[in-house]
């Protein structure tokens, strides 16, 4: 009886933490401000989803969920790699700030740098 209770309490705590983590990461995805930020946040969302699946595997005792979690990890990794290739080929978007708290001088320097890169 005791063992069952420990497990269900631990599952409850873990689910609560994952829920909070999910909202935090989702907020970063919405807020941005840059594409790489969103990619990193999406990668974390995948990790959180894997955690969810693991907890559900323990709760239901249905071990096939573990295979699902591994498959999700694989797909998530491939998605991140594809996103990284996209950032590399696309370059920085014109409207995107280079850093969250950028000054006008920084922006000028960046535009200069971007120009030089295009020349190369």
């Amino acid at each position: 009886m005791g063992a069952q209770m420990i497990l269900s309490v631990a599952c409850g705590i873990a689910l609560l933490l994952m829920c909070a983590a999910f909202f935090l990461a989702a907020w970063r995805v919405i807020k941005g401000p840059t594409l790489p930020d969103r990619i990193v946040a999406l990668d974390t969302l995948t990790a959180i989803a894997i955690g969810f699946i693991a907890v559900i595997a323990i709760r239901t005792g249905f071990n096939l969920y573990i295979d699902i979690a591994i498959a999700l990890g694989l797909v998530g990794f491939l998605a991140t790699v594809a996103f990284a290739r996209f950032v590399l080929s696309q370059g920085m978007q014109p409207g995107e700030a280079a850093a969250p708290e950028e000054t006008a001088a920084d922006a000028r320097a960046r535009r200069g740098g971007g120009h030089a890169r295009r020349l190369r």
Binding site: V9, A10, C11, I13, A14, L17, D37
Partner: peptide, 29 residues
């Protein structure tokens, strides 16, 4: 066994939560 599994679950949850918190709080990508 239940204790070990429970501790690992909670520790994993805490680490995942802190990762998400870090993604929200840290200054750049």
């Amino acid at each position: 066994l239940a204790l070990v599994v429970g501790v690992m679950l909670v520790a994993g949850g805490v680490f995942t939560f802190l990762a998400a918190l870090g993604i929200l709080r840290l200054p750049d990508v």
